[in-house]
Design a protein around this nucleic acid. Structure first.
Length: 138
DNA sequence: ACCCTGACATAAG
DNA sequence: CCTTATGCCAGGG
């Protein structure tokens, strides 16, 4: 399993500390400032936390993301949150795709997303990601 | 409270 | 495969 320490290393942030510390610091480092205007447990914050924990080289669906954040059947909420992320966010927004394995983000974002996925070794065949293989199931 | 919106999900034709 | 119709559900007016 991908520990938060590994995540931290991946995002080039920090040194050996407790996983909890690391988790916290990574969260603070990559979460949009807008989060702090709401309660720490807001949907935005919760979804960002889960988003940050998606391992490199894997993907989740909008529905998965919402559910893992505590909002089952609120797939559109996940989309709403992603849409609001700053363009320069360090969160792995590109690891979220729809249930058919296709990219939902309209152009020009779609191209950026595809490129980022391919950079992680996730290739799209016929415009689709092999969900059986790349879907993240913790 | 009501209404509209949407980086969704599913089923049906 | 593609298109359409429905269901969904939290946010923001």
């Amino acid at each position: 399993m991908a520990s938060y320490s590994l995540l931290a290393a991946k995002y080039g942030k920090l040194a050996p500390k407790s996983d909890n510390q690391v988790k916290n610091e990574v969260f603070v480092a990559i979460t949009p400032a807008s989060v702090h205007t709401k309660s720490p447990d807001s949907a935005l914050a919760r979804i960002c936390k889960v988003l940050a924990s998606i391992p490199c080289g894997q993907v989740v669906t909008y529905g998965d993301l919402a559910e893992m954040a505590g909002y089952p059947k609120a797939a559109r909420l996940a989309g709403q949150v992603l849409r609001k992320l700053p363009k320069d966010t360090k969160l792995p927004w590109h690891r979220v795709i729809n249930a058919q394995g296709r990219i939902s983000l309209p152009e020009p974002g779609a191209s950026r997303q595809r490129q980022r996925l391919e950079n992680e070794g996730i290739t799209l065949l016929k415009g689709r990601v092999d969900m059986a293989r790349y879907r993240w199931k913790p």
